[in-house]
């Protein structure tokens, strides 16, 4: 199943997507002045997911910002991101963030934030981070009387905020 979303009107466009329910999603930015914000924050439990996310900038002055946050528990996630800025899309910008929190040893994450850039008057960046619970944070919360589980739940909530 592939969702193709074509954006034809300038201005702010916000999308919230959940990796638990999609396999491939494509955003085509067909109009100058588009600001696309994609946020995807999810807990993934007991699943094996493979997601493709594509953003194609087809016009100058198009902007995309993608924030992905995953909390994995007994799960595997493969995320292939593909962002293209072909020649001519002057003044466009893109930023792709993908942070994953692995809560147990059985989880694994594979991220490929690919970019194809053929225009120099653009700004493009991506960042990927993979981490586990900060043991000092867990310890601090537990010293305040929270159980380990409560402490971890609180940290998951703050991570997904």
């Amino acid at each position: 199943m592939v969702d193709i979303i074509s954006i034809e009107k300038p201005g702010q466009h916000e999308f919230k997507i959940d990796f638990n329910s999609i396999q491939k999603i494509v955003f085509d930015l067909n109009c100058s002045g588009v600001r696309l914000d994609i946020t995807s924050k999810q807990k993934i439990t007991n699943s094996n997911l493979s997601v493709k996310l594509e953003v194609n900038h087809y016009q100058p002055d198009t902007h995309s910002k993608i924030i992905v946050k995953n909390v994995l528990k007994a799960s595997r996630l493969e995320l292939i991101g593909k962002i293209s800025l072909p020649p001519g899309v002057v003044g466009s910008t893109t930023d792709f963030r993908c942070d994953s929190l692995l809560t147990d040893l059985g989880s694994a994450v594979k991220t490929v934030p690919a970019m194809n850039i053929g225009e120099n008057k653009v700004k493009a960046s991506h960042g990927v981070a993979v981490a586990q619970f900060n043991q000092e944070h867990v310890f601090y919360l537990m010293s305040r009387g929270l159980s380990k589980k409560q402490a971890e739940n609180l940290l998951v909530r703050s991570f997904l905020r």
């Binding site: 147990d104 653009v122 586990q132």
Partner: peptide
């Protein structure tokens, strides 16, 4: 172009990846 493939299979790893493209 960038094609970074990042795979982490345990939860005791800290990983950070940053990339920028510009003029």
């Amino acid at each position: 172009n960038t094609w970074p493939d990042i795979q982490v299979k345990n939860n005791r790893t800290s990983l950070a990846h940053e990339a920028t493209v510009g003029q």
